[in-house]
Structure formats: C-alpha cells, structure tokens
Amino acid sequence: MTMNANLREKLQKGETAFGLWVTSEEPAVSEVAALLGIDWICVDLEHGYINYKAVAGHLTAAKGSGMSVFVRPPSQDLEAIKRSLDMGAHGIILPLVDSADEVRKAYEHFYYPPLGRRGLGGERSGKWGLGLEEYVANANDELMFVPMIETQKAYDNLDEILDEKVETIFLGPGDMSASRGAVGEWEGPGVAEINLDILRRAKERGVASGIVARSTEEAILRRDQGFGMVSLGSDIGLMIRQIRSMSEALGKTSVGHRWF
C-alpha cells in the first residue's frame, strides 16, 4: 500500500482530512482511530512521556488501515527524524520551524540521496531489510514532511518556507501566541487573523494547512475555513472532554480545562 495515498487524495481534492493527536503509549488508541475512519494520527514525542517503542506499537496497530501515521519528534535533530522514519512513520510533523534554512537542514535527515543524506538501515520501515529496496525506491516520493508554523519568526519567514517545496504545513496557535507575548493562550491577540492569513497564503501556493480543533464546533469551523488537516483533539483531551460533558450533565462539578 502506498504511504499517505488516502490522505494525499483528500488534500488534492480540497477535502478535509480529520486526525487525532496521540499522547498515550496505548496502541489500542490508534487501532480504534483507524476503525473509526480517522484519516491520520500524529504520535507526539515532543511533549509527554511516550518513546520510540510506543511509536512502533501505534504503527503496528495502524498497519493495513490506510491511515497515515505521523510522528512529531522532540527536536529537528538527525537522530529524532531518522529514528522516527526508520520505525516506519509515514511522515514527520516538525515542531518550531522558524526559517527556510531549518527546512533545508531537516530535509537532509528526511530524504535519501540525492535529495538528502538519510542513511540506509534494515529497520522496520524496510520490513527489517526484506523490503528495503522497494522502500528506498519510493520513500522520497511517498513520505510527507510537514513543518509547523508556530512562531512569529516562522510567520515573518512564511513565504520563504513555502518556497521549499512543502506540500502541507501545520499551524500551532498556542506557541504562536506565546511567541507574541500571550503565553498560555490558545489564540492570543491577533493570532486568529494570523492563522487565516497563513491558510490563505499557503493555499495560493497549492499548500494545504493543518490545525488542531478543541471542540466539534471548532472542527466544523476549521473545515469550513478550508483547512486540509484538522485534528479532532488529543486522545487524553477527548477523554477528558467526554467525561466532563457527562459529569456536568449528571450535576457533578468539572475540574479545570485542557487545551485540546
């Protein structure tokens, strides 16, 4: 099965592909997501406590489903990108990309020669060496590299980043707000307008944009605004959302709020 075929088809048709942010190591989360028809998931190694063994579990759970499995590595370094891809990830959602130069440096780790200098390894991605030739022949075309636009610097350098042959970007409103002085706010002053400006400018260049929604209503809004990838939230966040809703309906007091 061609990696990311279903996701790319939706993006190319201008449809919205709905996803899930995975923060738990439990592979059943990804298995259920695939059974429910979720288009993509992002296993988050940047925050939280899960590790590469957990990534392998999620990839195994999603195998054969047609659901794209992305990893958000903890950094832009060689090790984080290479290990995620060697585990079999279908793409990378790269955090805190500020410039086109950072995109080019990450490409070095992401692509095999001649586009980059990713090393060969007989790991899970190449079926433990049994399918390495096929994987290497197709990886540069099939894998998806998705930089996150989540700082004021990235916004300032947006055109240059979009020029680096990216097909999809992902917005981070919380970190964008923090970089503009509104730490702890999801969409601080001016960020809602920035999100739509990024969406518009990317679309003009044929680049899809992704974003996290924090409620059903927000997911509908983002779809209608034209976002190509919309996360319905995180696994733990969705559990909290449902438990809170039921608890409040039963007259119990809710505690706190979660971003997504």
Rank of each mutant, 00 (worst) to 15 (best):
A139I: 13
F170S: 08
F170Q: 11
E167P: 07
G116P: 02
A208P: 03
Y155Q: 05
L143N: 08
R201M: 09
D197P: 01
N195A: 11
T168P: 00
F110C: 07
G190H: 12
I149K: 08
G174I: 14
D159S: 13
D141W: 05
G119E: 11
I169H: 04
G116K: 05
Y111L: 04
N157A: 04
G121T: 04
L132G: 03
E185V: 07
W186V: 15
D159H: 13
W128F: 15
G172T: 02
G121L: 01
V207A: 10
L196T: 12
L199T: 02
E204F: 00
R124T: 10
D141P: 01
M176I: 12
R118C: 10
T168S: 10
K127P: 01
G121A: 15
S125N: 14
D141L: 04
G131F: 13
R205T: 10
N138R: 15
L120A: 14
E150K: 09
I169S: 11
K165G: 02
E185Q: 15
K127G: 03
Y112L: 03
V166S: 07
N157K: 08
S209D: 07
G116F: 05
D141E: 15
E150I: 09
A182K: 05
E142Q: 15
L171D: 12
R117V: 12
E167A: 13
R117S: 14
E123C: 13
A139R: 11
P147I: 06
N140Q: 07
D197L: 09
E108S: 12
A137D: 09
G121Y: 05
W186S: 13
A192M: 03
E164M: 12
P113V: 08
L120W: 10
D159A: 15
G129Y: 14
S125F: 14
D159L: 11
A202T: 13
D197Y: 00
I194W: 00
P173E: 08
N195Q: 14
L199F: 02
L158S: 01
P114S: 04
D197H: 02
I194S: 00
M148E: 12
L115H: 10
L158D: 08
L199Q: 01
A208D: 12
P189C: 07
E160I: 06
G188R: 02
W128K: 00
V166T: 12
G190N: 06
I149F: 05
T151Y: 01
G190T: 10
G119D: 03
L143Q: 14
V183D: 01
E204W: 06
G188Y: 13
P173Q: 11
E133M: 14
V146D: 03
D141Q: 15
E142S: 07
G121P: 01
G172L: 02
L115M: 13
M144T: 15
L132H: 11
R124V: 10
D156F: 00
D159Y: 00
A208W: 04
S209I: 07
V136M: 08
F145P: 02
Y135H: 11
